[in-house]
Write a protein that binds this DNA or RNA. Structure first.
Lengths: 337, 337
DNA sequence: CTGAAAGCGCTAACAT
DNA sequence: ATGTTAGCGCTTTCAG
């Protein structure tokens, strides 16, 4: 048998103050005399009272939760977005609640449904691609919705991110400028990672404009990304030994490839060039710096949270907010000038 | 002005079925004729109704949330614990809600307070060290509490983890057996990471028993762990060139040290041996495998979630559950036989 | 199988 | 500065 938890009434009785005034003290709202305030505080503390937000939220029709829906926690990219969100929420009474979709639209829909059923103050959700059901729920939710990470597509409400197409194009351009021509692509076998797909599309488009085609490709799924990066690099190079550049869809596999090539004694970046994507902190510790592109993760999180707060408190009319951040290319040591 | 969201009443009116029966259909509880069931389902779907769990939880006094409180998401260790929890919860209607403490007791207390105010079905919290306030709240919560990761100390209720003291001892023993004698320790400057501290204590204790003392130490805080591992390794070896073994408090700095030593042309493991802790996936991609010790993260998450479920549903009396898992030492290639 | 009534614990909006 | 009243949207319980 579970114990009933303490209620406002218990504190009221223990302190001899009305429930309403106890409530006021505990929320710090309304004028309460210092004397009663102390009495109440003391009683609440003594009893170990923790307010019941379920009841509070029902009565006030306000919830201090912000739903954050992301594809994965394993990716390192998303925890950074979360840090941005937490930072923006730090001084407020709002709290992020995290949901993970594993890149599956059906799971996204389920997670979204669960979260909406707690009537959060706002929703921050990764990506612009959602199932019809999810889109309907988001539109009907009646709260601010901010789609993050990506701006290539149609947003439901607000949107903060970078253009992954553009990111792919920029990298392609830089690679062509550096004189590389036999280019291989290595990525994840994830048709549902739309951002990776868009980068690849932008990449090939820009190459095509320079009269270059991706010479070979290799994909992986599962396992340690670093180890997979090695394997894939070995595989693609044994199949296409003439490649002079490898573009990786993320830094982890890029780092694996980098380690492999260094061990093989390849001359980087002259013999072969490399680039990844994301600008993860890990790269700082590698023997040489992998070329990459910062995805502005932290900033995206911060801005998204700020938008939710502004909209929820009615400071801003909904919709029409689109913030496109500019990814910065960090050439590192694996891309010749 | 925010839109009011749909209620059971809206569905009731749209379907011509009483609220109560609508509720029964939507929850799948109680016998409802197939005909009405369909009518209700159709209406709910058409309207885009999402139930209000706030009201539901208040009325039923049950919540399908399990609070999970961890120190960090950056650490890679914790996302794995979360995966274990998610896995155990997969087929149930319960969902984890994550809170992050940044290793700060005050923040832990705040996060715990916030979570308890939603009256979760259970609490899974990392570590056995908590502020007096947190301990009081946990005891008073009236729900299952499972402390995870560590078993060296006094649990409030249930506990699942490994003994970090023992882990440190085991590694020390293995290192001594291998004949290393001039041992350096490299770790984080985190007095509040009790598990790292306990590993170190177990480590030095066991060394002492073998008549060996830690010859030098180096600590870091902040930044890329991989990069810091390099730096610290360079620093400690320039100060104490005779060291023949480096024990790192985590795999990331260990990996950084490993890369550094390989580049310096040190002969591993003969000239110098290395070991880390955690058994992170990343190690699979390094040039050679760092010796490490698996912390059973996934399993800890799974077991903890199972305990909460069992206790919440009353299958098991509270308390008295202590599951000590055994960390496995993986010698890799950086520890001579 | 279906419905009506009575709250769950709190807070908004009014009194006083 | 403090108290009273009436719900918030759902589920439990008890009748039909």
């Amino acid at each position: 048998m579970r114990k009933r938890s303490l209620t406002l009434r218990d504190v009221s009785e223990a302190s001899g103050v009305s429930e309403m005034t106890v409530s006021r003290v505990l929320r710090g709202k309304g004028d309460v005399s210092e004397a009663t305030r102390l009495k109440v505080r003391e009683a609440a503390k003594r009893l170990g009272y923790v307010p019941n937000q379920i009841a509070g939220a029902l009565a006030s029709q306000r919830v201090n939760l912000i739903a954050v829906i992301i594809p994965s926690l394993a990716n390192m990219v998303f925890p950074e977005v979360l840090r941005g969100i937490s930072k923006a929420l730090e001084e407020t009474s709002y709290q992020p609640v995290i949901g993970v979709t594993d890149y599956l639209p059906e799971k996204e829909e389920k997670v979204l449904y669960e979260m909406l059923s707690w009537r959060p103050a706002g929703i921050i959700i990764a990506g612009l691609e959602h199932s019809e059901g999810s889109r309907a729920m988001l539109r009907a939710s009646g709260v601010p919705v901010v789609e993050i990470m990506d701006v290539d597509g149609e947003a439901i409400d607000a949107c903060v991110g970078i253009s992954h197409r553009r990111a792919g194009r920029l990298m392609a351009e830089r690679i062509l400028d550096a004189g590389y021509r036999k280019i291989g692509f290595l990525g994840t076998k994830m048709p549902l990672d739309h951002r990776a797909r868009k980068r690849f599309e932008g990449f090939t488009e820009r190459l095509a404009k320079g009269g270059v085609e991706v010479a070979d490709q290799e994909f992986y799924s599962g396992g340690s990304a670093l180890a997979k990066g090695r394997e894939m690099t070995a595989t693609i190079l044994s199949r296409s030994p003439k490649l002079d550049f490898l573009y990786y869809s993320n830094d982890m596999i890029g780092a694996g490839g980098l380690l492999y090539l260094l061990e093989s004694g390849r001359r980087i970046p002259d013999d072969i060039g490399l680039a990844g994507f994301n600008g993860v902190e890990l790269l700082d510790g590698l023997p040489i710096r992998l070329a990459t592109m910062d995805a502005c993760r932290r900033e995206i999180g911060e801005k998204a949270a700020e938008i939710v707060l502004a909209q929820y408190s009615g400071e801003v009319s909904e919709g029409e907010i689109l913030i496109e951040l500019q990814p910065r290319l960090a050439p590192g040591d694996t891309l010749r000038d």
